[in-house]
Design a protein around this nucleic acid. Structure first.
Length: 918
RNA sequence: AGGAACGUAGCUCAGUUGGUUAGAGCAUCGCCUCGACAAGGCGAGGGUCGUCGGUUCGAAUCCGACCGUUCCUACCA
């Protein structure tokens, strides 16, 4: 058998699976479906995707093996803003602006880009082993999904749940579009607080000082507000100010919104450029003075010196001009939260514009109830808080974007500006009886990408058509996503699906944590701390990794820092670990915690685990390639034991998976394979298989058990590490497996196993204890493993004698003994190293083997430890409250413990005295 | 400011309803190429479970306060 090399086995297998059609729903069994959170079609697979899909694939593969009719629905979204940015960048390389080529050509270019580069993420998902159903892959801009979008928009509009209005929205001046609240990232930055003197209108000698962090907005001031109870300003309320630079007269108003403690207690009110001021403006009926253009330059209605200036240029000039006029009272350094666009990094402006909104109140109510009444379950339950918090304060959803790439809003305007909404221009003309002579112009805006994503679970299954797929697979069973997506997407899917399907989109939502780097930092391009899952699978040199991390940096000065950090963390680049190791790592770190530090050392450990499994399979193959036939094979004690352990492990894994505890499932498999199967069972099988004296019935039994357990392990582990398990499984003799692929084999099932009740388990535990005791002596005494040691047993129970005689061969094989015998009269014992297992004493005679000093130290350590135990238990038992109140069985246990501790201590002390006397 | 979570070995993390001596991986130290596996085997060391109180016969686990870290939401111009 060749060495384990993931590169050689992984990709060919995936192609074989896909072309055999194994990812498609079987058409039999209970339906089980999961819709993929649509990745951005132009994107590449990042660690979050890789993590998420490792978990989902484990779920879906297990369900498939359990006989469900499984569908993991593939699809991508058009990622309106991101894609528009990318395509614009592509054009810029050719020296073109989007406006140069026009809307039609731009969309065409975007589709071309999608065709050429859009397949990347699909290929990467295949590299991950994701068993997605590719044949029904969907894209949000496909004809079918677009129809669903138009249908939903039209119906909502007809019901009055969509409206158009002039509102203050978050505006990205670089993109010149509205963006979602959720796409605005506010972070604390260093800025200034400018204190500006506003003279009173009727007495320019008297001034009032306002403080602002955005002086340029004063061009749009509509008032200055003070707190109604602020004694300092009572006399000013109702009077007017002469707004500097603009020379407009604005009122001084009283509003409780003002915090008298902050700054001067006077706030300039700019209703068209600040969300709070907008509210104040509404209360006081102030005019909305919008002084900024969509591109962030100052608008025509501002004083002429500033018109056309960029907002930050305008700020400088305004401060300069105020200074000239001696109207700056002071400028202080100030830390403030600056809102920036997630995609562009530019400062976001609240801007007044015409936008389309979804009225969410009526939609939100049933959506909240669906979670409250348990129709939808969040896992972990804590995540419900995020959902409820968001849903309770839900504002109307701005769904229009001033972009070209996306679903164009199905609304038309006649020359008078009347709005008509319908499924198409033709429908609009017919429905509203508009003659061809009247020109109709379609709305230029497109819909927020999340509007189409909100329909995802049912639009991908064919809605509004009543398809078989929709009937079979909706409601989907599960949605797996990150907590940052709950408000963006999960909440909106719930609202829209309840509205149009009259059922929930999914029964459960598993919210996973965030994968961070080893320092706990969020992985990001700008920080240069990201890892590409493909590099972990295939490996990458340090130079190539640095090149990758430092390309397209926003800030050039970061380059050296990133290079240094990368060289320190990955001096030799990254080894190729393979997909299985990466997937297993993701499952193993998927605890219920909110964030997970990703450490390559873990991947290495699980790659080693794969290697271990590979080698164990190799051993099984070698041990069974010459089958011994026997009519009535006998199972050894080890065979019985490992079957019980496997059943137990199967139960644990299934239970863990039912509870979405991927970490516990991975741990159970890891421990069973390595600590029980490899470390003990394979070793225990060796004496049976190699000893001449062993009867062939037992050899046949052991051979059968080896293959049986290995095959079971492969099935149990397949959802986590699909490639290596399938490879090894296909290498098993045909007679040992059922069906053409491990993917389609039955998943192991087992009820709870009471290990403590089984004699075989007790036997193996006894053997482990004896072997452990002897290995401890070997280790502490540095006795080389190839040197056989003589052993004397003394005292002990009757069962010890029985077991010793029954399992002598196994003990010999595991610790290499030269001789084993029982000592009836302890006084004749030669100087020996001693170990206690229960009441059984195990002696290893010193002659020629033992370093007496080392043995005394070892005994001291043991005596010391047992003394601690005795003290602890004695104190417990001396406490009357404990003896009186604790359950009887607990007290009994403690009493039994002290007995054995004390006799053990005496034995050890005697032994020490004997050794010391030599 | 409000809300939430977390703090367990040098590092990364498990620890189910309170009850044997708090576990694992990595790292560390010692021995070993013995016919599956050096991507390995065997052995060992390492924790007053953030701090202080409380409840309890008994607390890593339940409660409170504090310290520290992080996230979310909303922001004071």
């Amino acid at each position: 058998m060749e060495k384990y090399d993931p590169k050689k086995i992984e990709q060919p297998l995936y192609q074989a699976w896909e072309s055999a059609g194994y990812f498609a729903p079987s058409g039999q069994g209970e339906p089980f479906s999961i819709a993929i959170p649509p990745p951005n079609v132009t994107g590449t697979l990042h660690m979050g995707h890789a993590f998420q899909h490792s978990l989902v694939d484990a779920i879906i593969r297990r369900k498939r093996m359990q006989g469900n009719n499984t569908l993991w629905q593939m699809g991508t979204d058009h990622a309106g803003i991101s894609t528009q940015i990318i395509v614009a960048e592509q054009l810029a390389k050719k020296g073109l602006k989007p406006s140069d080529i026009g809307r039609e050509a731009f969309i065409e270019t975007a589709f071309e880009w999608k065709e050429t580069s859009g397949g990347q993420i699909s290929q990467q998902l295949r590299r991950m082993g994701a068993s997605l159903h590719w044949e029904t892959e969907r894209f949000t801009l496909d004809e079918g999904l677009s129809m669903a979008v138009i249908e939903v928009f039209t119906r909502l509009f007809d019901e009055g749940l969509i409206y158009r209005g002039k509102r203050l929205v978050n505006w990205d001046p670089k993109l010149a579009t509205s963006i979602s609240d959720l796409e605005v990232i506010s972070e604390e930055e260093q800025g200034s607080l400018w204190h500006i003197r506003y003279p009173l209108a009727d007495d320019s000698a008297e001034t009032l000082v306002v403080a602002t962090t955005r002086p340029e907005t004063m061009l749009g001031d509509a008032a200055v507000a003070v707190h109604p109870d602020d004694d300092r300003y009572q006399h000013l309320i109702g009077r007017s100010l002469m707004l500097p630079l603009s020379n407009r007269v604005i009122p001084i108003i009283a509003d409780a919104y003002v915090d008298p403690e902050f700054g001067t207690g006077c706030v300039k009110i700019t209703p068209a450029h600040d969300f709070n001021d907008y509210e104040v403006g509404q209360r006081h009926d102030l005019p909305l003075i919008s002084i900024m253009n969509p591109d962030g330059t100052i608008a025509d209605n501002a004083p002429s010196p500033y018109v056309g200036l960029d907002r930050f240029e305008a700020r400088k000039k305004i401060v300069h001009d105020l200074n000239q006029a001696d109207l700056i009272a002071s400028i202080n350094d100030h830390r403030l939260m600056v809102p920036r666009g997630e995609k562009t990094g530019v400062v976001i402006e609240p801007l007044l514009s015409d936008q389309w909104f979804v009225r969410v109140e009526a939609l939100a109510k049933p959506a909240i109830e669906a979670v409250e009444d348990g129709s939808i379950k969040f896992i972990p339950k804590q995540a419900e808080n995020i959902y409820f918090a968001w849903m309770r304060e839900l504002k109307d959803w701005c769904i229009s974007r001033q972009q070209w790439w996306g679903h164009r809003i199905p609304a038309w305007y006649d020359p008078e500006g009347n709005i008509y909404v319908g499924r198409s221009l033709e429908e609009v003309r017919t429905q509203f009886s508009i003659p061809e002579a009247v020109a109709l112009r379609q709305d230029d805006d497109v819909l927020d990408t999340w509007f189409s994503s909100a329909l995802w679970t049912f639009s991908t299954l064919g809605w509004p058509e009543k398809t078989k797929a929709l009937e079979t697979f909706h409601t989907t069973n599960l949605m797996v996503t990150g907590h940052d997506i709950i408000s963006f997407w999960v909440s909106r899917m719930i609202m829209m699906t309840l509205k149009f399907m009259d059922e929930v989109p999914f029964k459960e939502v598993y919210i996973h944590g965030l994968v961070t780097d080893a320092e706990g930092q969020k992985m990001s391009k700008s920080k240069g701390n990201g890892l590409d899952p493909m590099d972990i699978i295939d490996g990458i040199s340090a130079d190539a990794l640095i090149a990758k991390r430092t390309q397209n940096l926003l800030q050039e000065r970061q380059r050296a820092k990133i290079e240094k950090a990368t060289r320190k963390e990955f001096p030799n680049g990254i080894e190729p670990f393979g997909t299985d190791a990466l997937r297993f790592t993701f499952c193993a770190i998927a605890t219920s915690a909110r964030s997970m530090r990703f450490d390559l050392k873990r991947v290495e450990g699980y790659r080693n685990f794969c290697n271990k499994l590979w080698n164990a399979a190799n051993f099984v193959a070698m041990s069974t390639n010459q089958p011994i036939h026997h009519e009535a094979p006998i199972a050894s004690v080890a065979d019985h034991w490992i079957r019980l352990q496997f059943g137990h492990t199967t139960h644990i894994v299934n239970q863990a998976m039912d509870n979405y505890r991927f970490d516990l499932a991975a741990k159970a498999i890891y421990e069973f394979v390595w600590d029980e199967f490899c470390d003990w069972y394979l070793e225990l099988s060796k004496p049976v298989l190699t000893a001449d004296a062993t009867n062939t019935a037992m050899k046949a039994g052991t051979q059968a058990c080896l293959v049986e357990i290995l095959e079971g392990i492969l099935r149990l582990a397949h959802p986590f590490i699909p490639f290596i398990t399938e490879t090894l499984w296909l290498a098993l003799p045909q007679s040992e497996r059922q069906g053409p692929s491990l993917m389609l084999a039955a998943y192991p099932e087992h009820g709870p196993v009471d290990l403590d009740a089984a004699t075989e388990v007790a036997d193996i535990r006894w053997i482990k204890n004896i072997v452990g005791a002897l290995r401890n002596i070997r280790g502490e005494q540095d006795i080389p493993p190839n040197k056989a040691i003589p052993i004397l047993f003394t005292q002990g129970a009757k069962s010890d004698r029985e077991r010793q005689s029954k399992f002598a061969d196994l003990i010999t094989a595991l610790v290499k003994t030269s001789d084993m015998s029982w000592l009836e009269d302890e006084t004749n014992a030669p100087p020996s190293a001693i170990q206690l297992v229960g009441t059984l004493k195990i002696l290893v005679p010193l002659a020629g083997l033992i370093d007496t000093q080392a043995e005394i130290e070892r005994l001291d350590k043991a005596i010391n430890k047992i003394q601690q135990d005795i003290i602890r238990v004695e104190q417990k038992l001396a406490n009357e409250a404990f003896v009186n109140n604790a359950p009887a069985d607990i007290v009994e246990k403690e009493k039994a413990k002290i007995q054995s501790y004390q006799s053990a201590k005496i034995d050890l002390e005697n032994q020490k005295a004997r050794i010391a006397a030599i």
